[in-house]
Design a protein around this nucleic acid. Structure first.
Lengths: 197, 197, 197, 197
DNA sequence: TATGAATGAGGATTCATTCAT
DNA sequence: GATGAATGAATCCTCATTCAT
């Protein structure tokens, strides 16, 4: 009979489930089934409900985790001294390296669009929160004359669209990885978009 | 017994189904059910199988239809005379206007990622075919000195990412439409990405 | 492979399901499972949903059917001429004979209490509708001096309680059937309850 | 780790569970889940199994408890001197007062029919044991000429049916409580059923 | 062509019960 | 005694697909 750890390692199972969900949603397309998530995490379907009250709750928790990690990577960029130019260069580098390091979480958070009938769950949140952060950086750039005075929402959209297109293209097989190899041209492109003339 | 119109044109039902599928996939999230598609098209579930051998076949046909329409809009741009600069400007304008005109088809073709477990169906195809077309345009630009010598795959990715970010942002509620309003700044941005210095 | 009649006998399957539900709820205790009902009706679980949108809907329809039948038996008693005394005698006779004829429907309608968490479904309705009918009969008896002036709600309760106690006792094995054998003493008892002195 | 009161009296948990079961079965409809019972009793699911070997055992014990209490209320009526008339009046009064005092236990014991697929658990027992007691009282009445010579099983059925119809009607909202208010007319009706002419 | 009842597998979720701690 | 994570079967319901009519 299979060895089954009992009762102790709560965290283990819980985060095994979160990771399994992220992995499956990222690799598959759309929403993964509870059965699949359970199997991927090495537990029974029913066990999930000791940790999450529903599928939505599980996916929400997974999103929250991914959002938090991704924001933590970026937040320091806002607080440090130096030019906006350098901060944005770092932003691009971190983003592309992040895809290489955890392609599943990245895909789950920024590329996939797994929603439910009754309301969006996932990645829009990641996008939104990252976008808000970037908007502040960009506006600082506008204020100090480094960037040109674009509508911030548009600037976020254009910048994100251009930068994410690289991991997206790698994810879809249109470009060869690793993503970090593109840091230089991607930053160059991004800066053309944003820089004051 | 239900009244049945004699000589009902087959095309009607078939394309009603295609349109229904496009609409539902674009508006909903992920794959729509056969029941829903049938209802949306005004026929019964079983009837679908007179026109398509399976759900995958239906979705594939829907994709093909969308791809064809979108390519038809763009193809003339390649064949005409004039600068690449002007062609790309037209490309951006057509693209954004196309979103405004048929947001469902656009979303189905370029923004959503509805795949099946057993193999991709939809939008990658649209993307791929448009990308190939654009690559040729871009390479002409490189050849005649209008564009800078970027890796074409990367150029396609960056250009598409930036340009599609606007309809995507509108679709997700992060930007207010119509998309055509952004034609000028989007082309400006795109050209900064691609133009020779 | 098993012979499976298809598509034609709609009514058959639908009422087979209603009957199966009545039978199982009456014989079992509390609510029967969809699996059991389907099996009892000789179809697959999924097939139920071609006829009823949910378990609640199925049970509601079953109740409605039972209610209708039971009321149809009693309604004529109100419209005919003659004494209330004789009408109530007939009421008792019909009721007890009805148990013998269709013990399952009777049990489903008047003895069992299968409810759902989110709202009563079944037999309270039968009781209520029969009670309302009987109350009118009784009030006529009060008006013409045959019955004593009890609170009608109380009269309904006492009369029903006494009369139904016999099928209930038979159902629970505390009394030997058939119920019709008790018509005389039950009517005698009921009339003692209700008659003017 | 959770604070654990030393020397916690076992009885506490055990009877908390019994009470919880009675309450939930009486208020809900049909059988309550172990989870719900545990929560209602303020313990965890697993803890139940320290006190009862299974759900059936728990429900059986709950029934036994209810039966015992109800019989204890009635037994003195048999042993005392005086007329059967007065004893039956007291029986009715006690019964109705008992509903007002503990509607959940009363409902669990006499009104609900929560059984399991594999065998009856609950209220039939209460009914049976009370019935047997009442039958002895009634037979004494027959013997001493106070009551008319009905079949004792039928007499029990009619009497119980009439008397319990009042709490049942209150429980189902067809009559306004408290039940004790109906003691006089209910006894009057009961005595009409049972008394010698 | 079209219908819609039927299937059988699979969807999320709840259940009673077990057991290492 | 008590905990609560884990199990596996069962809950109601939806799915894509088939086929007699």
């Amino acid at each position: 009979m299979p060895v089954r750890r009992v009762n102790k390692p709560v965290r283990d199972t819980k985060s095994a489930l979160l990771d399994a969900a992220v992995r499956l949603v990222a690799r598959g397309d759309g929403i993964s089934s509870m059965r699949a998530i359970a199997r991927e995490a090495g537990v029974t379907e029913g066990a999930i409900y000791k940790h999450f009250s529903s599928k939505d709750a599980l996916l929400e928790a997974a999103t929250e985790q991914v959002v938090a990690r991704m924001l933590d990577e970026k937040r320091p960029l806002l607080d440090r001294d130096g030019t906006v130019h350098d901060a944005i260069r770092a932003w691009v580098e971190i983003t592309l390296a992040s895809y290489d390091a955890e392609p599943d979480a990245f895909t789950y958070g920024l590329l996939a669009r797994p929603k439910r009938v009754d309301g969006p769950i996932a990645p829009t949140e990641v996008f939104r929160s990252q976008g808000a952060l970037f908007a502040r950086l960009f506006e600082r750039g506008v204020a100090n004359g480094e960037c040109r005075p674009l509508d911030p929402d548009l600037a976020v959209a254009l910048f994100s669209g251009a930068m994410l297109s690289v991991p997206r293209a790698i994810h879809e097989g249109r470009l060869a990885g690793p993503a970090a190899d593109y840091a230089e041209p991607v930053f160059d492109a991004a800066w053309r978009l944003l820089a004051a003339d």
